[in-house]
Design a protein around this nucleic acid. Structure first.
Lengths: 332, 332
DNA sequence: CTGAAAGCGCTTACAG
DNA sequence: CTGAAAGCGCTTACAG
């Protein structure tokens, strides 16, 4: 490997001078610069970022911990993070923790040793301890998760407004008996907001029917099970607002398999705009979260904090969209 | 930040000794070890991996260049790479190049400066120059791409056998007029194998009908267009073998929108087993590539080479699967 | 078993 | 504008 020393020797200058021309950090006379550049060209010298990092105390590394990259929205967030990162010269160290608390902790420690300058955690839910540990490193961190508290910097959409708007939309389409299918018993902050949004819409429209059904998980299988239960009382309602697209698809699959047509018999809407929702037939109406932007905006904020510029603290809210597709029927 | 010096001072030993207990690299007397461990515990000292990396000349970093993480199979490969990497203490530096040659080159240079110990390139197609550049760094590299040559270490499935088997399957189901929809005009090694597999099956079964239709791209839109063309001669064939799932879905969507039922009127099969293929109705029959394993196996090989163990060179072949789903009709 | 010293490949005051 | 020197936080022969 050719080092700065070799270049200095060959160009007959000091290593200080070589460093100066590489980094353009101080004036160097044109002739000397040319000589150095020539040697660099000839030898194919490339600075060693590890050595540089040690002395400058800058790693330009951002640690990203995700729970599962297989989820399309997670991959989109990571794309956003990386894109903005690269724009500012930062690289991404990717860690997949698969929702294991121990693994998350292990990676947090790892990222600290690797001198990551910032942390970005992306997951459905993080344990309080993990959130605290992440914050304990005195590095900027950003969270994208469903359970939040006011001591963390996090990015989200207004879940309350989103479900409120969605429920209102169904009501405007003539629905009067709308069920809300909630994912967890163990409620997250976001889930509470969603439920409140649903109830608010019911209340504001003076409907006398409201019902919350707990799925108990975000899995397709669990939602399919719930679908079976709902089958028995299929005439009691006309629409289901689901807290996630996964649930919406699970219930819909169950209905379709049992001869209930969506949207003709029952309307179903989801939340999240996962990629699969567009491939499913009928395409499901859903709330779009701008995942790529979640990564991009979060990263921009992270970099701001790293640079010591003053940045917004706490919650950062991004706009959501109501994606009207084909799983809702208009009732006269 | 607390450094090894601080620990040494507080434990009243030399930094050599501290280093020895951290790394368990040389015997240290029990009392001294205990004293050092205590100080580490109290101060929360964590070794700086950057400094360590500089002196050991090991970064434990693998550079991964992908074209688009948004594609589900790419995310799966990355998951496999990371999983095995972490198992052996390696971290992943993720770079998304979006098929831009300049970006790929930029990242290759970046990864070299960052002292990445190995390279893993994942993309539909890489320019010859990029392949050569990657190999020029004298680091182990693995490719997962459709265009290959015998000088590279790459991982793939047997595309010829896969399409041969798929075409045979359709023939056994009674199909006699089968079209092959090819993605690119600019053919890759893999695409050539696929076409040969298709033709071989036709020949072996002594069918007198074969037809290759070029889509010209791997995009849904282009495939949809081809669907329109095929609509006009819909009675001339009974099945379509597509070189990718994306194409299969594009053609299928076009047919469905125009009243042609899949599989009742026309059978369609894809290749790749992308996640969307399972959500589409009907679910498409396809060739499954073990993407997670592609990453995992490739990474294991990469690490072997890094460790200087002798590893297989050239092509590494993984088994494919024929995923029989619901887009094929049996003809009596 | 332990420590002093050299060195990994850089950057950056400091002095000239 | 240029160079000698110190130092970033570690590991590792070397000597004892």
């Amino acid at each position: 490997m050719v080092t700065i020393k070799d270049v200095a020797r060959l160009a007959e200058v000091s290593i200080s001078t070589v460093s100066r021309v590489i980094n353009d950090s101080k004036p160097v006379s044109p002739e000397v610069r040319k000589r150095v550049l020539k040697v660099i060209e000839e030898t194919g010298y490339k600075p060693n970022d590890v050595a540089r990092s040690l002395v400058t105390r800058r790693s330009y590394l951002i640690g990203v911990i995700v729970n599962n990259l297989a989820e399309s929205h997670v991959a989109d967030i990571v794309r956003g993070i990386e894109e903005i990162g690269k724009m500012y010269g930062y690289d991404i160290l990717l860690c997949s923790a698969y929702s294991s608390k121990e693994t998350q902790e292990k990676y947090l420690q790892l990222l600290d040793r690797k001198q990551a300058e910032g942390l970005f955690l992306v997951g459905y839910r993080f344990d309080e301890d993990i959130i605290k540990l992440a914050q304990s490193f005195n590095k900027p961190c950003i969270f994208f998760t469903r359970n939040v508290n006011d001591k963390m910097n996090y990015i989200s959409i207004d879940c309350h407004a989103a479900i409120y708007e969605m429920t209102n939309y169904l009501i405007k389409e003539g629905h009067k008996k709308i069920i809300y299918a909630s994912d967890f018993e163990d409620r997250t902050t976001a889930e509470n907001e969603k439920i409140d949004g649903y109830l608010k819409a019911i209340e504001d429209n003076e409907l006398n029917f409201s019902r919350i059904q707990v799925v108990g998980s975000n899995k397709h299988g669990k939602a399919y099970e719930l679908g079976k239960t709902l089958l028995k009382e299929i005439d009691d309602f006309t629409a289901i607002v689901c807290s996630t697209d996964e649930i919406a698809i699970g219930i819909m699959d169950c209905f379709l398999d049992n001869g209930i047509k969506v949207p003709d018999d029952i309307s179903i809407v989801g939340f999240g705009n996962i990629r699969e929702g567009k491939f499913v037939r009928p395409e499901i109406t859903t709330i779009g979260e701008p995942y790529y932007d979640v990564g991009a905006v979060g990263m921009r904020m992270l970099i701001k904090v790293i640079k010591g510029e003053k940045a917004q603290k706490g919650r950062m809210e991004l706009p959501f969209t109501l994606e009207k597709r084909k799983s809702v029927k208009t009732i006269e």
